Computed example of a mutant assay.
Amino acid sequence: MKNNIHPEYHTLTVTCSTCGNTFETGSTQKDIKVDTCSNCHPFYTGKQKYKNVAGRIDKFNKKYGIQEDEEQE
């Protein structure tokens, strides 16, 4: 490895601005702040909300006068 060409590597504390969770990691930066972390992100916490797809379909059908009871031949 060549001398004096690589950035300095630091051990730092990452802070989540949403929940205040902190954890240590290594980086060439001296300070890292994140908006969401695995402690508060809905995907990781299991509190993810899904859009009501059936409601959107009903709204579309109502808008264009499509009845769901119609049988296609």
Rank of each mutant, 00 (worst) to 15 (best):
N61A: 11
C19N: 08
N21F: 11
N21D: 08
K2G: 07
T13Y: 08
K62R: 12
Y50L: 10
C19H: 05
C16P: 01
D35P: 09
K51V: 02
E73P: 10
V53P: 00
H6Y: 11
G46M: 04
Y9G: 04
V53F: 08
K59G: 00
F43H: 14
S17F: 04
K47M: 04
K63A: 12
T25N: 06
E8H: 10
K47G: 05
K63F: 08
T11Q: 09
Q29E: 11
E70A: 10
E73I: 14
D69L: 08
T28L: 04
C37A: 10
S27A: 14
C19L: 07
T45N: 05
I5T: 13
Y50P: 01
N52W: 01
K47S: 03
T13I: 12
Q48R: 14
N61L: 12
T36V: 12
D58T: 13
K33S: 07
H41W: 08
N21C: 04
D69A: 14
D35S: 14
M1D: 10
T11M: 04
P42F: 02
Y64V: 11
Y9H: 15
K33W: 02
T18Q: 08
F43D: 07
Y44Q: 12
K63N: 07
V53I: 09
Y64E: 00
K2Y: 10
G65R: 14
T22L: 03
L12Y: 01
L12A: 03
G26K: 15
L12C: 01
F23A: 08
H41F: 15
Q72T: 09
F43S: 12
Y9V: 15
Q29L: 13
Q29S: 14
G46L: 05
C37I: 05
D35C: 09
I5V: 13
K59C: 00
C37D: 02
T28D: 06
Y9F: 15
T22M: 05
N39P: 02
S27R: 07
E70L: 11
L12S: 02
V53S: 03
T28Y: 15
E8V: 14
H6L: 12
S38I: 09
Y44L: 07
T25Q: 08
G20H: 07
N4G: 06
S27K: 06
V53D: 03
I66L: 13
K62V: 00
Y9W: 14
I66D: 00
V14R: 11
F43M: 11
G20C: 04
C40G: 00
V34D: 00
F43R: 15
P42R: 05
G55I: 02
N3C: 06
S27P: 02
I5H: 06
K63M: 09
T11D: 06
K63C: 01
V14Q: 07
D35E: 09
K51Y: 03
V34F: 06
S38Q: 13
E71G: 12
K2S: 11
K2I: 10
F23H: 15
E8P: 00
E24H: 15
C37N: 05
C40T: 02
T45W: 05
K30R: 15
Y64P: 00
K62S: 07
T18N: 10
V53K: 11
N52H: 05
V53W: 05
N39A: 15
I32N: 02
S17Q: 12
Y50C: 06
A54N: 04
V53T: 06
Q67T: 09
E73G: 13
N61D: 07
C16Q: 04
H6R: 13
I32A: 02
D31A: 15
V14Y: 11
K49D: 01
C16Y: 07
D35M: 14
T11N: 08
G20L: 06
